[in-house]
Nucleic acid binder design. Sequence first.
DNA 1: CTTCATGTACGACTTGCATCGTACCTGAAG
DNA 2: CTTCAGGTACGATGCAAGTCGTACATGAAG
Lengths: 111, 111
Amino acid sequence: MAGRTLVGPEADALDLGAVFRALADEHRRSVMTELAADRSDSERGCNSFDLPISKQTQTHHFRVLREAGLIAEIDYGNRKGIRLRRADIEKRFPGLLTLLGAESPGGTAPR
Amino acid sequence: MAGRTLVGPEADALDLGAVFRALADEHRRSVMTELAADRSDSERGCNSFDLPISKQTQTHHFRVLREAGLIAEIDYGNRKGIRLRRADIEKRFPGLLTLLGAESPGGTAPR
DNA sequence: CTTCATGTACGACTTGCATCGTACCTGAAG
DNA sequence: CTTCAGGTACGATGCAAGTCGTACATGAAG
């Protein structure tokens, strides 16, 4: 029941280059935007994001997000959970998550 | 004497994906970090950044930064000036420039 | 004019990366 | 046990991007 938690680098070791590279992809950014919008930071299933890509590619993207230090993955064996590392991100790069929310209001929004 | 100013998209049209893609490259990020650190926002020559890459590649990188809306290029014909679009960036993505300054304190810094 | 430094245009090369096909593993349900 | 869904590992593929070589344009200096 208790799965092993896979985490990337520690909070102080987060690399801004890796973070920007991770957030450069549309699919990964949409995942992060959803996670950042949920203030409860509840654990989510990794197929609850409705990504229009195959399973293998999703695995790849979640790995990139984890290695960038943005999320933690909880491995249950045949299932996987995703959790946003909000505290660590805010500690190392304050304001980054707020920035993700600023994507719609004025950008692609029809207003 | 007065060169033509080349600017990318307007402030409201800045795309977060393009911005992250632009900042994902080490060389472009170093340029932006230097620009963000100079609070006077003075115009700078484009070879004042000591980039360890060829002229052609520098041209390419500055073009990417301009098309992402992060800088403006002033064309003097045989010379070029670089200016940070601080106001526009702060208006659309407040806190982004501050984030660039957070690269050293705790990351690659020797402490 | 010629010379020179700066920057660009075009093309080629190489690397990185997103994507998917196939095969395999894991745990739950039957 | 078998079946099945969720996830991973590995390899292949196609495309985007960083890099540079060659050639050319621009304006200043001589």
